[in-house]
Structure formats: C-alpha cells, structure tokens
C-alpha cells in the first residue's frame, strides 16, 4: 500500500534532485559565461595596454623634442619668458632709482 506521506517524500526528493541538476547546470553555464567575460576583460586590457604603449611610444620625450625644435620652431623656456610681473616692476623701480642717483 502506498501511503500519502511516502509519495510526498518521493516527489520532494524528485523535485530536489531535478532542482539540483538545474542549479548545477545553471551554475556551470554562469561560470563559463564568467570565464568568457573575464577573458574578454583581459583581452580588452591587453588591447588597452597596446594602445597606451603606442601612445607612450609616440609621446617619447626625445621624439616630442625633435618635433618641437625642428618642425614647430619652439625653443626652451628662458627665465625672461616667465618672469613674475611683480619682480619686473621691482627691477624697473630699482633701475629708476639708480638713474636718479
């Protein structure tokens, strides 16, 4: 004779078993997705590194210096180019006082 509690337990076990399989399958699938995403991230990081390295290579100080000097006609900054205006006023005052004396 099949009793109701026994059949209930049987179905519960069956349900749990199927659920467990589903969970396992789901987790495995997600893990694979995660692995793919992580690999994609690493690949993207590597690509970014290549771009950064290329940019760094193009921005090499020796290259920029050559371009600045030979192509753009720039030169190094001299103190007279960036003198503080207040100091220039002081110089003028000093010079004027010297002339008056």
């Amino acid at each position: 004779m099949i009793r109701y509690p026994s059949s209930f337990i049987f179905f519960v076990i069956l349900f749990v078993g199927i659920s467990l399989y589903q969970i396992k399958h789901f987790i495995t699938k997600k893990e694979i997705e995660l692995a793919q995403i992580q690999n994609n991230i690493k690949s993207a990081k590597s690509d970014i590194n290549i771009l950064k390295a290329e940019l760094s290579y193009l921005k090499r100080p020796d290259r920029i210096e050559k371009i600045a000097l030979n192509r753009l006609g720039l030169r190094e900054i001299l103190p007279t180019d960036i003198w503080d205006l207040k100091d220039l006023v002081d110089i003028t005052v000093t010079l004027n006082n010297g002339e008056k004396k």
Partner: peptide, 15 residues
C-alpha cells in the same frame, strides 16, 4: 567549480 568550468570550456583561454 570555476576552475572546472574554465578547463572544460576552453583551456587555452584561461590566463
């Protein structure tokens, strides 16, 4: 589990 997943999916892509 993660390692198994990585290995079963694509061994070479695991870095």
């Amino acid at each position: 589990v993660s390692n198994i997943a990585y290995k079963t999916k694509d061994n070479k892509s695991f870095q």
